[in-house]
Amino acid sequence: MSTNYFSLHCAFRHILVSTINFLFIFLGISNLAIGQGPSEKRENESAFFSDLINLESTADQVFRYTTTLENNSSNPQVYELITELPKGWYAAFKTRGKQFTSIKVDGGSKETITLELHPSHEAQPSKYSIPVTARSDNESIRLDLEAVISGTHKLEISTPTGRLNGKIIEGQRKEIQLVVKNTASLDLEDVILTSKAPPKWSVVFEPSKIDNLSPGETENVIAILTVPDKTIAGDYMTTFTAKNANTSDQAVFRMSVVTSLTSGLLGGTVILITIAIVYFLIRKYGRR
């Protein structure tokens, strides 16, 4: 009796172990098949992809992504391109040099599409997710892009007081105090000072170039403006520009030219002499 019980117990144990192993194997194969299913591309499923999905630049630059839209169905489809952008950003889709919002792709064909992304000038350094969707009547395909803002380049040029006007006597020169400030988050290198003045006027900057300007830093610059002799009195505009390879700014300065005392006296003398000559001629020949 004891022997039969032991044999029966061993047989039951062997069957139980075999059953459990079978269940583990079966469930493992099922899970593997289920796990692989979504990653396998369904037949005739279209595609929307880009070789580079992550780009890094500054907020004042344009991010350009080259994407490919494949219509793997047998019929042509019209796709609408949609982006979800942060506030203040702007996107443009282009192909063959033309901008569009919807595009027709023949069945079994593909189109190369350039996405130009313009960040907001106020965008802070960070990584931004840019979902892009190509949607037709039959399907919707999503492409996830990333734009990394490393910082911004921006500067300002003005005067210490903000006043952009003054007076100068013709034939003389005047020193104008200017301030150049880095208002962004990245260093500015090789900032050049230039000007656009009326004909025959001259402008010399001291210094004429700023090698480096850290964020928040300012640099004082003197613009020496020279007005030629015999300049007609009036208001004249001179534009001062500070720029480098990444950004620029301008300040338009209004200069009022006045006549010198010597020129005024000379002009008055000429007028008086002219009046005297006319009076003499009238007195002399007017009696006849």
Rank of each mutant, 00 (worst) to 15 (best):
residue 152 T to L: 06
residue 157 I to K: 03
residue 201 W to Q: 06
residue 189 E to K: 10
residue 32 L to A: 12
residue 23 L to H: 11
residue 215 P to A: 01
residue 38 P to Y: 11
residue 71 N to P: 08
residue 160 P to N: 13
residue 188 L to M: 02
residue 51 D to V: 06
residue 241 T to V: 08
residue 165 N to D: 12
residue 242 A to M: 05
residue 23 L to W: 12
residue 23 L to A: 15
residue 86 P to Y: 01
residue 51 D to R: 07
residue 36 Q to E: 14
residue 17 V to K: 09
residue 85 L to N: 08
residue 162 G to N: 10
residue 122 E to Q: 13
residue 79 Y to H: 08
residue 152 T to F: 00
residue 267 G to Q: 10
residue 152 T to N: 14
residue 189 E to A: 08
residue 55 L to M: 08
residue 213 L to R: 01
residue 97 G to I: 06
residue 146 E to Y: 15
residue 20 I to E: 07
residue 99 Q to S: 15
residue 216 G to F: 06
residue 87 K to P: 02
residue 267 G to E: 12
residue 53 I to W: 11
residue 217 E to F: 08
residue 52 L to P: 06
residue 73 S to M: 09
residue 50 S to M: 06
residue 177 Q to I: 01
residue 102 S to M: 01
residue 64 R to D: 04
residue 251 A to C: 07
residue 236 Y to W: 04
residue 5 Y to E: 15
residue 261 L to T: 10
residue 48 F to Q: 02
residue 285 Y to K: 09
residue 137 D to S: 14
residue 192 I to M: 11
residue 152 T to Y: 01
residue 2 S to A: 13
residue 86 P to C: 04
residue 67 T to F: 04
residue 239 T to I: 14
residue 81 L to G: 06
residue 36 Q to M: 14
residue 130 I to W: 00
residue 88 G to V: 00
residue 186 L to H: 06
residue 105 V to S: 09
residue 242 A to Y: 04
residue 257 V to C: 05
residue 124 Q to G: 02
residue 216 G to C: 07
residue 59 A to P: 01
residue 272 L to N: 10
residue 193 L to E: 03
residue 3 T to D: 13
residue 112 T to V: 13
residue 229 D to T: 09
residue 169 I to M: 04
residue 262 T to H: 06
residue 97 G to D: 07
residue 101 T to W: 10
residue 48 F to M: 03
residue 256 S to V: 05
residue 259 T to W: 02
residue 263 S to G: 12
residue 288 R to C: 12
residue 120 S to N: 12
residue 238 T to N: 09
residue 44 N to V: 10
residue 69 L to V: 03
residue 94 K to G: 07
residue 196 K to P: 00
residue 140 S to I: 01
residue 282 I to T: 11
residue 52 L to Q: 13
residue 214 S to V: 09
residue 281 L to K: 14
residue 232 I to A: 13
residue 15 I to T: 12
residue 57 S to Y: 02
residue 62 V to K: 04
residue 59 A to Y: 04
residue 9 H to R: 15
residue 120 S to E: 07
residue 75 N to R: 15
residue 254 R to M: 11
residue 238 T to P: 07
residue 220 N to Q: 11
residue 227 V to P: 01
residue 64 R to C: 05
residue 139 E to L: 07
residue 88 G to E: 00
residue 222 I to L: 13
residue 217 E to A: 15
residue 251 A to T: 08
residue 218 T to V: 12
residue 15 I to A: 15
residue 181 K to T: 15
residue 73 S to Y: 06
residue 93 F to P: 05
residue 32 L to Q: 03
residue 163 R to W: 10
residue 37 G to I: 11
residue 147 A to H: 03
residue 8 L to G: 03
residue 60 D to W: 05
residue 96 R to N: 15
residue 70 E to R: 13
